[in-house]
Amino acid sequence: MFLSNDVQGNTEMLERHIVQPADAEHPTILSTEDLHVYYGKKEAISEGDLRFASNQITALIGPSGSGKSTFLRSLNRMNDRIATVTGRIMYRGVDINQPSIDVYEMRRRVGMVFQRPNPFAKSIYDNIAFALRLRGTTDKHELDEIVETSLKQAALWNQVKDDLNKSALALSGGQAQRLCIARAIAVKPDILLLDEPASALDPVSTSQLEDTLLELKQNYSIIIVTHNMQQAGRISEYTAFFNQGRVLEYDTTSHIFTNPQVQITSDYVSGNFG
């Protein structure tokens, strides 16, 4: 099934070009319908209806202030106190943008990793075990196991396995960000949202992080905001281009980068602005 709502004819550049993913192997896990985000009276997101495929990586790109981070943070309602979000956010058929939803339970299924690494001022072990303990996992063996697998999945285990009791604040930027990923996946979410996770990292750490994300895709559906076009090109299956609070183009990543249908997208991916 192809959903295309081209606004103009095919010969010229379009104003909007949305092709929702339609891959039977990777059914839609999350979608937004009629989503609007307001900061006070100012509308930050006006057209942002997207479907996200499961076990794939979707990249959200666009110039600063285009609304991509706002959009991402709305998906697990991190914007609840800051902005007004209207419309539906369908997660496996359930609208999670309604007041009766328990946001805490929901966020355990839709996890998030932030722009700047934010390990807690606790030991490496406790950074991961802490949220689990609060939700009743107290068995030492079980915790040990989860800590180990999470750190392995985040490709950090080998570097820290002897220092699990040391403070997480002593980790390097790249290691700290991996720890944050390990922490996020330890609660076994379904979807992982990443808000420019590599923007504070050096090139080596960035490429390690990308490898990790490609690994994680087998078990998680990933949505990542990135400033870095090459990064979107390297790791994502789908890419959405945001501009001024609207999704202007959404398609497979290869289409977006090789054959953009919208002028602004084309300008952006070729580095002419943004």
């Binding site: 355990r108 932030f114 934010n118 807690f120």
Partner: peptide, 16 residues
């Protein structure tokens, strides 16, 4: 004095 990203990190794990 504690960075608010710490707070967000906790919220994103499903903490109240």
């Amino acid at each position: 004095t504690i960075d608010t990203t710490q707070r967000e990190g906790g919220l994103a794990l499903g903490l109240s």
